[in-house]
Structures are given as structure tokens and as C-alpha cells.
Design a protein around this nucleic acid. Structure first.
Lengths: 138, 138
DNA sequence: ACGAAAACAATAATCGTTTTCAATTAAATG
DNA sequence: CATTTAATTGAAAACGATTATTGTTTTCGT
């Protein structure tokens, strides 16, 4: 979470305030809509940039997919993925089948707990990211 | 994985073939580029639609984010999320702190293993999806 | 208070994906 | 095997989310 020079502008104060009011992980659009009530002239790009900066400086946390593009896999069995930020490829997580089995069981138990709490769990995604072996070797 | 009436068209045969050749989880665009060599007139939308249908029928597996939109969280500590497909809200996974701790440890160990395999692991995302409690109660 | 750097609003551009629609084709039916 | 009909196609436009650009305004160290 590398810090970045950040000015405390009026817009950013309000965006942070309203984000906290909203609670539950709002989308940028949701933040925009409530902030606009107090700052009718604010633009979407300001909200985007401000949220980005606030998260880079550790005030808030960004929730975003490891990779936004759709991908398709000819292997239909359960396994986990590793996204390499360098070559931008999605690889199979380099794990032995017994490790995958173990994790699957572990997470399955967690799902049961959530079901017990009144949630209906259809599934989950677990993706790792970083630099893959072949990129790392260079 | 609900089955859907599917015709085995020439395009689909070739898309499936080439997906298998490509191996590593290609994006739609990557599939399009190789398929175009054999079917110069094929359109992007056909590739999108075909991959979708092939995955709906269990021939291949779709890898996609639980939710594509960026979201922001005022809680900066580690915790997992649950995406409700009904109300389209991202909630905190309803798990006790000790459960989160345990999972974190478990997955941390997995990361170590991958690091031992020559990968540099920056992090991971774990997201559950389904129907949340309040939507389920209706 | 002054001036450089950062942030702003507005707008256009981009990216990945989905939709629309008329023409074509697979496969079920007679 | 010819006919029917419903699915599929290609081409193009539309789409939603995000980013880049532009000229103007604001913040904040000096």
C-alpha cells in the first residue's frame, strides 16, 4: 500500500464521510450518488480518483477483481488460479492435489457455517496474484 | 451448470478445439485470434456466445469475477466478502474472527508453498457468492 | 499572500462485453 | 429426403464501467 502525496480537499473529506455512512462496500456509482447531494457539481471522475487515492493512502480498502476479463478453461475440475501481473496470464495455482483437497474441505466447512447463519452459498472464488515462476526467473 | 439446447456447429467445434490447444485459460480475445486463422469470417460475438454456451453445458469452465465493479470499504482490516446475486450487494462474510484467522493461516501456508515453487505471491482474493440472509428470508 | 503542484469539472475516449436484427443453418418432423 | 422451425450466425450498434484529456481552480509550503 504505497503512500502517495495527498491533499485533503473538501471533496475528499465528504467522499470519505459518505463512504463511512454508506457502510456496506458501495460501488463508485453509489458513492457518487450520495456525495452529489452535498456537492451537486462533483464529477464522476473526481469520485473515482479520490477513492483511488484514499485507498492508496490506507484510509479505505479497494475491493476489485484480480483480473476483470473473462477467461475459459478446458479443465472443468476444481482447482485454483494464479494471476501473474507481469505476463498477465492466468495459471493454475501450483499446488498438489492433496493441498487443493484440504483447502476445499476447509472452505467447504466455512460455507456450512455461513449456511447455518442464514446465507445460501452457491460457491466461491479463490485467486492468488503476484509474479509467476517463469517471469520471476528473469 | 444448467444444460441448454446446444447445436454442434462448425464454429463451436473449432472454438473448443482451439481452446484446448491454447491450454492456459485464455481470454475471449485470445481465442478469437487463433480461431480467426481457421475461420476468417467469424465474429467476436460468436466467440463470446459460443464460449458461454460451451461452459453452460459443461464442456469448459468459465473463470470470471464474482462482481466486476470496483467497490470500497471503510474497514481496512483483513476480512472476506459475500456477494449477494439477488440484491447485488457486497457484504462481509458472516464469520467469527477466529474462523477468519484460521482460514488466513491456512491460506498463508498455501502461499508459502507456492513461494517455495518459485512464485512470488503478492496476495489473494477469496469471495463467496449466493443469496444473503435478508434476501433469503423473503 | 504568492506561486508551483495537485486537484478539479466536464467531456471524450477506451475497454470488454452484450444486444439487435436480418440472413443462414442444424436438426427434428413428416 | 424435403420441409419446417428454432437456434445460430456475422455485422454493427449499444452498453456500462473506467480512464484520459483539457483547461480552470484550489491547496499549501514558503
Amino acid at each position: 500500500m504505497e503512500k502517495v502525496p495527498m491533499r485533503i480537499t473538501y471533496q475528499r473529506k465528504i467522499i470519505l464521510e459518505e463512504l463511512k455512512n454508506l457502510g456496506n462496500h458501495p460501488t463508485v456509482d453509489e458513492v457518487y450518488m450520495v456525495v452529489k447531494k452535498r456537492l451537486p457539481k462533483i464529477s464522476m471522475s473526481t469520485v473515482y480518483r479520490s477513492l483511488e487515492v484514499l485507498s492508496k493512502n490506507g484510509f479505505i480498502k479497494k475491493i476489485e477483481p484480480v483480473d476483470t476479463q473473462k477467461r475459459f478453461d478446458d479443465n472443468t475440475s476444481t482447482h485454483y488460479h494464479f494471476y501473474c501481473k507481469n505476463c498477465e496470464k492466468m495459471k493454475d495455482a501450483p499446488l498438489k492435489p492433496e493441498m487443493v483437497k484440504k483447502l476445499e474441505k476447509e472452505i467447504g466447512a466455512i460455507e456450512k457455517i455461513m449456511e447455518g447463519n442464514g446465507y445460501k452459498v452457491d460457491g466461491y472464488t479463490l485467486e492468488f496474484f503476484g509474479t509467476c515462476k517463469s517471469c520471476e526467473q528473469k
